[in-house]
């Protein structure tokens, strides 16, 4: 498969539009103490969880959008709103010009959704029987079906699984089959909720490549949630980061890095085992003449650090790189975790 530029999208018009969307859950709070039983029954304590707090989001046709955030940030809630499985408590959800709840039948025929922990396959039937089920239920014209079937069969290498029952598939095979089935309808929007959860590296790579290919070749709009930032960066040009039900960041990955941190990692290999002391850089680890430092590129110049090192010892090799995106976002989540919760507002 050709190397693809994940930033290359071909937006033509709006695929998804969320305007001021609120989603609030009410969760009963129960005590473990017997003495509280009567009180819980008579005056139940209910905790209000604002899963989405006035989200505004526009996704254009042909975009691949990564939708990320820590657990409980509102990712799956958004996917469910976009499938028409949930109705918003406030604001408006429109996709392909339709209301996913009120126009459900028309709408779901034009989208596909894959939930990482669920399967649409018929458990006790061969995969190809599930595909046939999809063809009839989605009323896909035979010729179009044959075309898409051929495409997904080749790209996702399905020959080995077509005649196997869903319950006998490995997780990776099942995900490929589920993804293939979701694509048989040629959806205009593909919603993926943690599609690579639990997959090994190889299965994960194949699925990611396929999604990119699909977007490039057919212009399918993809909204994908995952906890794996590196994976999302490979896939999407744009990342939307959620934090406690609000959009904390919406832009390109490169912008996210710039926005979040100027931190760089400097690796030095020296002739002696002792690590040189560098003003403006923090020694992260040192092992047998290899030393790793962290520094902020916005305030400290690399040349200064190298000069300091060279003045103290003989430098054999130098390497600098940005920290992995996972680390960047993990730091961000940690920062969010320690910040105070936003105060309640919005629909009751």
């Amino acid at each position: 498969m050709a190397e693809l530029d994940p930033h290359a999208t071909c937006p033509t018009d709006t695929a998804v539009e969320l305007s001021g969307v609120w989603k609030v859950y009410r969760v009963h709070q129960r005590s473990a103490r017997l003495i509280d039983l009567a009180r819980d029954l008579l005056r139940p304590r209910i905790r209000r969880i604002e899963a989405l707090r006035g989200i505004d989001l526009t996704v254009r046709r042909g975009e691949v959008v990564a939708y990320a955030g820590p657990n409980g940030a509102g990712k799956s809630t958004t996917i469910k709103l976009l499938c028409g499985l949930l109705a918003p408590d406030g604001g408006r959800v429109r996709a392909l010009g339709l209301d996913p709840v009120h126009d459900r039948v028309r709408y779901v025929g034009r989208i596909s959704v894959v939930f990482g922990q669920r399967t649409e396959l018929w458990w006790d039937h061969a995969v190809e029987a599930s595909f046939e089920w999809k063809r009839v239920v989605w009323d896909i014209p035979r010729q179009r079906y044959e075309h898409m079937f051929k495409l997904v069969r080749e790209l996702l290498d399905l020959d080995e699984v077509l005649r196997t029952t869903a319950r006998e598939l490995s997780l990776g095979q099942r995900m490929r089959a589920d993804l293939a089935m979701a694509l048989l309808t040629e959806p205009e929007i593909l919603l993926l909720d943690e599609p690579t959860l639990g997959l090994d590296v190889l299965a994960r790579r194949r699925i990611l490549e396929f999604i990119r290919e699909l977007n490039r070749e057919r212009g399918v709009t993809v909204i994908v949630t995952s906890h794996d930032m590196a994976e999302l960066e490979q896939l999407a040009g744009r990342i939307v980061l959620l934090h406690r039900g609000e959009i904390a960041f919406d832009g390109a990955f490169s912008e996210l890095r710039r926005h979040l941190t100027g931190e760089r990692v400097l690796s030095l290999e020296t002739a002696v085992n002792a690590a040189p002391t560098l003003a403006g850089a923090r020694l992260v680890r040192s092992d047998a003449g290899r030393h790793e430092y962290a520094y902020d590129a916005r305030t400290v110049r690399l040349a200064e650090l190298l000069e300091q090192a060279a003045a103290q010892t003989e430098v054999l090799d130098v390497e600098t790189h940005r920290p992995p995106i996972d680390d960047v976002v993990a730091d961000l989540y940690e920062h969010w975790l320690n910040s105070p919760s936003p105060t309640g507002r919005g629909p009751g």
Binding site: C83, G84, L85, R104, V105, R106, Y107, V108, G109, V113, R118, E120, V137, W138, D139
Partner: peptide
């Protein structure tokens, strides 16, 4: 029931 509701049928 989600499996039912994602089908394009009443």
């Amino acid at each position: 029931l989600d499996h039912v509701l994602v089908q394009p049928q009443p």
